Amino acid sequence: MATVTIDADIKAKWPEGHCSYSPGSPEELAIIGIDLLVRELGTEAAQAFIEQIFDKYPGDHSGTPDTEKA
């Protein structure tokens, strides 16, 4: 499996304040995305949205590397 690194600077703003994130891995990016999704949609709606992603892959998906180049 290929190792993926991410170079990103994410800034999220709400009326109550803001947050900044700098994920370095797909796992960190996913956690940030899920956190933002739950804040925006609420827990149940975020879970339903995420379930759509899991429905795309079989339960035994091994995380094969993407062959598409950026």
Results as ranks from 00 to 15, higher is better:
Met1Val: 11
Val4Arg: 03
Val4Lys: 05
Val4Cys: 08
Thr5Phe: 06
Ile6Phe: 02
Asp7Thr: 08
Asp7Ile: 13
Asp7Pro: 01
Ala8Gln: 04
Ala8Leu: 13
Ile10Pro: 00
Ile10Tyr: 05
Lys11Glu: 11
Lys11Tyr: 12
Ala12Pro: 04
Glu16Gln: 14
Glu16Gly: 08
Glu16Cys: 04
Gly17His: 02
Gly17Pro: 03
His18Thr: 12
His18Glu: 15
Cys19Leu: 15
Cys19Val: 10
Ser20Phe: 10
Ser22Trp: 00
Pro23Tyr: 01
Gly24Cys: 05
Gly24Phe: 04
Ser25Ala: 01
Glu27Gln: 15
Glu27Cys: 06
Leu29Glu: 01
Leu29Arg: 00
Ala30Tyr: 06
Ala30His: 08
Ala30Asn: 03
Ile31Gly: 09
Ile31Asn: 12
Ile31Tyr: 09
Gly33Phe: 02
Ile34Ala: 12
Asp35Pro: 06
Asp35Ser: 11
Asp35Gln: 13
Leu37Glu: 05
Leu37Ile: 01
Val38Ala: 04
Val38Cys: 05
Leu41Gln: 14
Gly42Leu: 07
Gly42Ala: 06
Thr43Cys: 04
Glu44Phe: 05
Ala45Cys: 09
Gln47Lys: 11
Gln47His: 13
Ala48Phe: 04
Phe49Pro: 00
Ile50Glu: 03
Glu51Lys: 15
Ile53Lys: 03
Asp55Tyr: 05
Asp55Trp: 09
Asp55Gly: 03
Tyr57Val: 14
Tyr57Thr: 07
Tyr57Ser: 01
Gly59Cys: 05
Gly59Gln: 10
Gly63Phe: 05
Pro65Gln: 07
Pro65Gly: 09
Thr67Asp: 07
Glu68Tyr: 14
Glu68Met: 11
Glu68Gln: 10
Glu68His: 12
Ala70Leu: 11
